[in-house]
Amino acid sequence: MRIVIVGEDAGRAGELEESLGFFGQDWNVSWLAQADAALSITDPVDVFLCGLRPGGLPGTVLLSQLAALHPQAVRILLLDQDEDAVMLQGLDCAHRLLSRPLDAGELIEAVDSVAELRQVLGNEELKQTIGRIGSLPPPPRLYLELSRLLRDPDASNAAIAQMLSQDPAIAAKVLRLCNSAYFSGGREITDIRAAVTRLGHQTLLRLVLASEAFGPMHLGGKEREAIQDRSLRTSRLARRLLAGPSAELAATAGLLAEVGRLLPGVSGGPDQPGPHYAEAGAYLLGLWGLPMPIVEGVAFQHRPGRLKASGFWVAGAVHVASALVAETPVDEAYLRNVGVIDKLPQWRDMVEPAAAEAA
């Protein structure tokens, strides 16, 4: 496997290669001082890795350009401990975010988990099922545009409200959700600008995503409402299981956990014929270009232990939240392995009642 590391301390090359050898990885690692040297590579590369400020280009820009030149390569962005604020921005261009200094074990886990996901989404039965669908649900246009706007630190609530108002149907759905039992707090919200102020940017962004993602569902009204209800409860619970920017990733992945049900020909369980809705949903999100941790969280929501990444992260949070909301068994062996089994009773108490029960 060929790995290219850009703009990092080449003095650590020997240390990293020694560590990789200890883990049994015979990888070819190249260290480049300047970004333009990476952009001039024409031979196949398996992994590109850089920080936020590699020589010559911002790291996010470099990885975006490398994505076009080497679409099959795994892209990893290195962050210092105080760079959490740019975490979500980095996920637009990188498959993985790792912390400095680079740890060989974390690098191996990151590469292996992306390879595992590609194997899942490369399932031939899944590809054939997707290929037989005449028209896939379109990408959530307004969600993606709003995501770009929210990256601007100078974006005002008025500008956000104006963007939402360009699509009256979405605006109406957002207001309807905003006034549901989950978000209203007993006060009716009647305009989009008030919704922006009341909900906050990330919650509003997820409501827009829910409105767009679940709008074209082929399912009947009651089934659609039941799925949307579970999705909102799963999202809110998943968000509470993680901290910082990871909480927002878990909330979005939880919201989309059942989006695969949009697609005809998928199954509702692992023992039923046809690709599972979790894998189909992850495939759809990959086509939409959503960040890899969200795609992974949906793909592995029922089997988080298959991910090689250590610790309890997005896929684990979605697994727990979706299982508790749907009242299905939680993988306690997995929780024990990642060291959070003692939190399960507390998490059970956090589950919100269904909308019909709360009414």
Results as ranks from 00 to 15, higher is better:
317 A>I: 08
310 S>W: 08
81 Q>D: 14
63 L>G: 05
247 A>H: 07
299 A>D: 08
192 I>E: 03
238 A>P: 12
277 Y>N: 01
184 S>H: 12
138 P>G: 01
286 G>S: 14
322 S>D: 11
57 L>T: 00
90 G>P: 06
334 Y>K: 01
1 M>C: 05
115 A>K: 04
185 G>A: 02
218 H>Y: 11
325 V>D: 08
289 G>P: 07
337 N>E: 15
252 T>D: 04
145 E>T: 04
232 L>H: 12
72 Q>A: 13
352 E>D: 14
177 L>G: 08
232 L>C: 10
258 E>I: 00
5 I>H: 09
123 N>K: 01
120 V>E: 15
103 D>F: 05
256 L>I: 10
162 Q>S: 13
235 S>A: 15
293 P>I: 01
22 F>Q: 09
171 A>L: 07
148 R>H: 11
189 I>T: 14
73 A>R: 00
79 L>E: 03
240 R>E: 15
11 G>R: 13
149 L>T: 00
57 L>S: 02
233 R>M: 10
186 G>D: 08
203 T>Q: 13
187 R>C: 06
59 G>Q: 09
92 D>F: 13
106 E>Q: 14
68 A>R: 11
4 V>K: 01
124 E>V: 11
205 L>V: 02
226 A>T: 13
26 D>R: 12
237 L>I: 09
226 A>Y: 11
53 R>W: 12
88 L>A: 03
144 L>W: 05
104 A>V: 07
106 E>F: 06
180 S>M: 06
159 A>G: 04
103 D>P: 04
239 R>P: 05
134 G>W: 10
157 N>A: 11
152 D>S: 08
110 A>S: 08
189 I>D: 02
71 P>K: 07
280 A>D: 07
6 V>T: 04
170 I>R: 02
133 I>K: 01
8 E>Y: 05
194 A>G: 08
246 S>E: 15
78 L>D: 03
315 A>Q: 09
236 R>K: 09
354 A>P: 10
340 V>Q: 03
202 Q>E: 15
271 D>H: 12
217 M>W: 12
101 P>I: 07
249 L>R: 05
6 V>M: 04
282 A>H: 06
15 E>A: 14
296 E>P: 02
124 E>P: 14
6 V>K: 01
209 L>W: 08
43 D>G: 02
56 G>C: 07
76 I>Y: 09
102 L>G: 06
347 W>Q: 04
146 L>V: 02
232 L>W: 15
121 L>E: 10
256 L>Q: 07
143 Y>P: 06
305 G>I: 00
292 M>G: 00
275 P>A: 01
352 E>F: 11
97 L>C: 01
200 G>A: 02
30 S>M: 07
249 L>S: 03
121 L>S: 06
19 S>P: 02
273 P>A: 01
57 L>C: 01
357 E>L: 12
72 Q>W: 07
